[in-house]
Design a protein around this nucleic acid. Structure first.
Length: 571
RNA sequence: CGGGAUGUGGCUCAGCUUGGUAGAGCGCUUGGUUCGGGACUAAGAGGUCGUGGGUCCGAAUCCCACCAUCCCGACCA
């Protein structure tokens, strides 16, 4: 391919609205153009990468027993209403109506659709298990699209759905998909780790996220290097390791202290001359329209996901100032946990026998010597704190660290959450109809592409892993005016193409510097320079984009074989 | 949804305070010179100044509304 013929307009300057390395590089290298916030056009080079990732995904899916289908993006509302997600998804779902006024949506995912398709037939247990997957666009009207392809409103996703006879059988289907996922992410060149995760809006019993380490990650997790425990911060557990409050003197009663203009935990700790760990933080939440007071150690943060689970809620949010006033008669800053009329959830790491300082439940006052065991009447005592770096691993007790990553894949065990409401059932051995036990498995293709760039770039540009590179080799003839150079370069290019190696030749009238910089920006794994050294010695200069220091001087006739060999032995 | 910012040739931005009819660099076209890490030179093309309205003799500039984009927040008492 002639470089001048590829529609991949490069940008010298960083586009103003790109907020991540991958986003900038995709725009700069001409892989992508933005159409609207969170909506992109894949230009040719970007499409090629996308297709290569999809090919790897298909190969692994097929070899792990899944079969490809294709479901519509535009879906009727009924199945969504049947599972309750029509409302649950809320504004995040792109909804529309047809000319007759019938409601439709642009699918944010496809559980309802596959389950309806499968449920329309009546299978025998003998035909189980089976797994259906497809790769298409998904639509989610994100509150705030961000990070280029990492959080967009239209995105390409693989999703696979397994159908099993029972809870035992689903384990095997799940394991198969986890294996396929591991293979896929290895093959595309990502370093990643599977972490335990919340199942969120999809629902279901357990789930894992496949997370690649990246600064621009949209997901935070805690991990233990000693035993391998890793979990999304939404659900991560830990042994609290920070300072403890002073032990209680059981005789001393709770005492109210005037604390004018003292609001934050930092101010409270300073005022009383204690560590933040000796204070309690009381925060009023509204969970499913009912108030719940969450109480954690002053140096901790409430984990809303955990809180929601404790009280079996669906949605939660912070109470507004007005609600706070109406419910507890106090402003933020003096909210206290003692003697309140709303349900109180106390974090399990709060010391029951210790003396804490907390808000007094009246503006401008705090209390000291609050002993939880004596002074609080919690509805629940449960783990509702967010894990922090420095906490200890819940499994082995070693130090936990936290990091952010990009969630590129997610696997869920769904149970019968969809098969029951959508009446998807099979006939079991005893002749009875039973709902399928389902699993679902998703991979963000565009996100994977972005993650690959996040992990494989330098200050010059992209460094594509060979497995997903839009082209594998770029041939750079310098001195285009010199016929010998040009023809040698073209011969190499043709020989590579004939050998099945995708190659680009930089046929432009540009100075050497421009060609080198563009080659580095575009990031094709192998660069071949045909220039002065060729004129002197007849050799090409072959380098890997990821290791420019190693220059290989290769005789022209040996170059194709050398390059193929080089690609085979490098990532 | 709240707060903030921005919107000017393809890109990055200046001009706006103090209204007088639009600029730079990059990119693009043509010619010449260059030719191993973003060359030089000459000549050129290219702009409804986000949209609509208002003020004014006159608006990119001032005022209002809307739209779009981005950032921050919705994370804490």
């Amino acid at each position: 391919m002639y470089l001048s013929k590829i529609f991949a307009p490069r940008l010298r300057e960083v586009p103003q609205d790109a907020d991540t390395v991958s986003g900038q590089l995709m725009l700069r290298a001409g892989l992508l153009r933005k159409s609207a916030s969170g909506i992109y056009t894949y230009l040719n080079l970007g499409l090629r990468v996308k297709q290569r990732i999809e090919t790897i995904v298909r190969e692994e899916m097929d070899s792990h027993g899944a079969q490809e289908i294709l479901m519509p993006l535009l879906m009727p509302a009924e199945p969504w209403q049947a599972t309750g997600r029509w409302d649950l998804y809320g504004d995040e779902m792109f909804k529309l109506t047809d000319r007759k006024g019938r409601p439709f949506c642009l699918g944010p995912t496809h559980e309802e659709m596959v389950t309806s398709v499968v449920g329309a037939e009546r299978h025998s247990y003998k035909e189980l298990p089976f797994n259906l997957y497809h790769i298409t666009n998904k639509y989610r009207d994100e509150i705030r699209p961000r990070y280029g392809l990492i959080r967009s409103r239209e995105f390409v996703m693989l999703d696979a759905y397994s159908f099993d006879r029972d809870e035992t059988a689903v384990e095997a289907s799940y394991a198969l998909m986890v294996e396929a996922y591991n293979n896929i992410f290895h093959r595309v060149g990502l370093t990643f780790r599977p972490i335990q995760a919340d199942s969120g809006a999809i629902g279901g019993s357990s789930s894992h996220e496949f997370t690649v380490l990246a600064e621009n990650g949209e997901c935070s997790y805690a991990a233990c290097d000693a035993c391998g425990y890793a979990a999304n911060l939404e659900i991560a557990r830990a042994q609290r390791s920070s300072a403890l409050p002073p032990a209680a003197d059981s005789v001393t009663a709770m005492e109210t202290v005037a604390t004018p203009a003292i609001h934050s935990i930092v101010e409270v700790a300073q005022f009383f001359g204690v560590d933040a760990a000796a204070t309690l933080k009381s925060i009023l939440y509204i969970v499913d329209n009912k108030p719940v007071l969450a109480v954690v150690s002053g140096d901790d943060d409430v984990n809303e996901t955990k809180l929601r689970k404790v009280v079996h809620g669906q949605e939660d949010r912070l109470a507004t100032d007005d609600e706070l006033m109406a419910t507890l008669g106090v402003h933020a800053g003096s909210v206290g946990p003692a003697g309140v009329s709303v349900p109180v959830v106390v974090d399990a790491s709060v010391q029951q026998e210790a003396a804490y300082i907390a808000g007094a439940g009246a503006d401008g006052f705090h209390v000291r010597n609050l002993v939880p065991d004596r002074d609080l009447k919690p509805a629940f005592v449960a783990d509702i704190r967010t894990v922090r770096a420095g906490d200890c691993c819940p499994v082995c007790g070693k130090l936990l660290h936290t990091a952010t990553g990009i969630e590129v894949g997610h696997t869920f065990k769904l149970g019968t959450k969809y098969s029951v409401p959508l009446h998807a059932s099979f006939v079991d051995e005893d002749g009875s109809e039973k709902p399928y036990v389902m699993g679902c498995y998703g991979i963000g293709i565009g996100r994977t592409m972005a993650a690959v760039i996040e992990q494989h770039h330098d200050d010059k540009g992209i460094i594509w892993p060979t497995a997903v590179a839009p082209y594998e080799v770029i041939v750079i003839p310098l001195n285009k005016g010199d016929d010998a150079v040009w023809h040698a370069a073209l011969d190499l290019h043709d020989a590579l193409e004939k050998a099945g190696v995708s190659a680009v030749i930089d046929d432009r009238e540009e100075s050497a510097g421009v060609k080198f910089n563009d080659a580095d920006l575009l990031g094709f794994p192998v660069q071949v320079v045909v220039g002065n050294s060729f004129l002197k010695t007849g050799n090409f200069e072959v380098t890997l984009r990821g290791n420019k220091a190693d220059k290989n001087s290769v005789p022209a006739h040996e170059a194709p074989a050398f390059i193929e060999d080089l690609m085979r032995t490098s990532p």
